[in-house]
Design a protein around this nucleic acid. Structure first.
Length: 314
DNA sequence: CGATTTTGACCAGCGC
DNA sequence: GCGCTGGTCAAAATCG
């Protein structure tokens, strides 16, 4: 296991380890990166993570982080339990399989190259477009026996936090809520959404940190296999050029695209108009270099990033 | 009236 | 095997 697929993004003032809750339970790896030197669009790396091998070192480099200024929290197989206990965190979500281990100035490699492999851990029945969608006749809920034998592979996922008053952050895609569950040890429920586009199995969930109610933890799972809906009901339509809304600048990977719209600052500006600039890129060159080096297809992203997030210096 | 949300039940994985 | 928990289903309710 020790996947690298789930990035946990520390986007803004979020320094309390205890804030670490179970993000829906299965954030296998969590990254904490000091926001001061990180480009939110770095999340596009998620795509890279499961498409190419990439170690933490390169991630750091891509982020333009210097070992001394970055905080990289990642799970270290075999030591996570201990770590968890050390930080006094209990298994809040029951699903958090790994806990952050503090690694200063160095990166864990336990899951580095594993970044590409699909999750193998506790796979659930999801990802499976309700096998009954078409032929599920009877058996309603019990029908998931489906695809026997083969283990359900979970889509790559990653989580990040944003400071927001609203739970459901508008990102341009259309989502349908399909469930809500109470979060253990938290007064705030976790909401489950899935993309309403046919054939698209992307899901995401929101949950508010009970340690810091102003923080919303968003976890994405899967990748959109379609461009942003042209008919947006959210604010995105008015904020981004048509070219950005009607086509996926990344071709297949839409994460970066939607993530850009989920950036804390984006919402801060939209909702609070405060604390702007808390997490804008300060080292553009590193990021762009990475784009060229690791993800040439992200060329367009480079164009969008600078205009949207590469400034706002306080 | 179609789309979306709500909500209780169900299911599967995991730890004990 | 049992209980707990996260995740999903789907009927009912609500919304636009």
């Amino acid at each position: 296991m020790s996947d690298f697929r789930d990035l946990y993004y520390q986007t803004s003032a979020f320094n309390n380890d205890h804030d670490q809750q179970s993000f829906g339970g299965e954030t296998d790896s969590i990254y904490r990166v000091s926001s001061s030197s990180v480009d939110p669009s770095i999340m596009s790396f998620t795509d890279c993570l499961h498409s190419t091998s990439m170690d933490y070192g390169s991630l750091e480099m891509a982020l333009g982080l210097s070992p001394s200024s970055s905080e990289v929290f990642s799970s270290v197989e075999g030591s996570n339990r201990t770590t968890k206990q050390q930080i006094g965190e209990e298994d809040l979500g029951g699903g958090t399989r790994e806990v952050m281990g503090t690694i200063n100035s160095s990166v864990s490699s336990s899951s580095g190259e594993a970044g590409c492999e699909e999750d193998s851990g506790k796979s659930k029945k999801d990802g499976q477009p309700k096998g009954s969608e078409d032929g599920g006749e009877n058996s309603k809920k019990g029908n998931k026996a489906k695809t026997e034998g083969e283990k359900k592979q979970r889509e790559p996922r990653f989580a990040f936090m944003t400071k927001s008053e609203v739970d459901h952050l508008e990102d341009g895609y259309r989502w349908r809520k399909y469930g809500q569950k109470a979060v253990k040890h938290s007064p705030y429920p976790r909401s489950y959404y899935r993309c309403t586009t046919q054939k698209c199995t992307v899901k995401k969930r929101f949950e508010r940190s009970f340690q810091d109610p102003s923080t919303v933890i968003t976890t994405y799972e899967g990748q959109h296999n379609h461009p942003l809906p042209t008919t947006l009901r959210g604010s995105a339509a008015g904020l981004f050029p048509p070219s950005m809304l009607t086509q996926s600048p990344l071709g297949r990977a839409n994460f970066p695209h939607e993530l850009l719209m989920q950036m804390p600052n984006y919402h801060h500006q939209m909702n609070n108009q405060a604390t702007a600039g808390s997490m804008f890129v300060q080292n553009v060159s590193h990021f762009q270099q990475y784009l060229h080096h690791q993800a040439p297809d992200y060329g367009l992203l480079q164009d969008m990033v600078p205009s949207m997030f590469l400034k706002h210096e306080p």
